[in-house]
């Protein structure tokens, strides 16, 4: 199974390391041609405004939406989750609209509010370590969206069909739980 990581900017190498640990050799995606043949695609952390501009400039916008429509699995972390959401606030900006979510950018505050927290998850027993960096908040989840992890009573990891979105950075921890769930989703579709 081929897994791609959008490598325009951000912590794409941290995702690559995590996937390599799980036995997957990922492909960095910077152009439309590099999307071909992928079963799954990671949208990493970074600056969502920067990613947005590149998706438009490189003509990746529609191909990524088609990739999702044709059954490709997606994982977005932090900036990636912002790109996947249906609606983005603070400020309002365009997004791919592949997960029925409303996301508020930088909702905890600036870098001084960044921190590591723990929260319960459906993916396994015991709390999940969550690295929040200038993180967004999921303000609304659509009726078809499953909440897979919470922190302080808020959804922080959700699934909408074959799309996983996390407001934190599982790739910056030693815990492969979220990436395992993503690969399972890509293989089995659930």
């Amino acid at each position: 199974m081929k897994v791609g990581i959008l490598a325009l900017q951000g912590d794409f190498e941290a995702h690559a390391k995590m996937l390599a640990r799980l036995g997957v050799e990922p492909r960095f995606v910077r152009t439309v041609a590099e999307l071909t043949g992928l079963a799954a695609l990671v949208l990493p952390g970074g600056e969502s405004t920067t990613h947005l501009k590149f998706l438009r400039e490189e003509g990746l916008w529609d191909p990524i939406r088609q990739f999702a429509e044709s059954g490709g699995a997606l994982l977005g972390t932090c900036a990636g989750a912002i790109l996947l959401a249906r609606e983005v606030k603070n400020p309002s900006q365009e997004s791919l609209g592949l997960a029925d979510l409303t996301v508020v950018r930088n909702a905890y505050g600036r870098q001084l509010a960044s921190e590591i927290r723990f929260g319960p998850t459906k993916l396994r027993a015991g709390p999940l370590q969550m690295v929040f960096i200038r993180a967004p908040i999921i303000e609304r989840v659509g009726p078809g969206v499953e909440v897979l992890a919470e922190c302080d009573g808020r959804p922080v990891l959700v699934r909408d069909g074959r799309v996983l979105a996390a407001t934190f950075h599982p790739e910056l921890t030693d815990d492969p739980t979220v990436h395992e769930a993503f690969l399972k989703l890509a293989r089995n579709g659930s």
Binding site: A14, G46, E47, A79, S114, I116, V131, I133
Partner: peptide, 16 residues
């Protein structure tokens, strides 16, 4: 944790 969060933001700026 403080250190990891500091380096975490630096990670987000890579490639930019």
């Amino acid at each position: 944790n403080t250190w990891r969060v500091k380096v975490g933001l630096a990670e987000m700026l890579k490639g930019g």
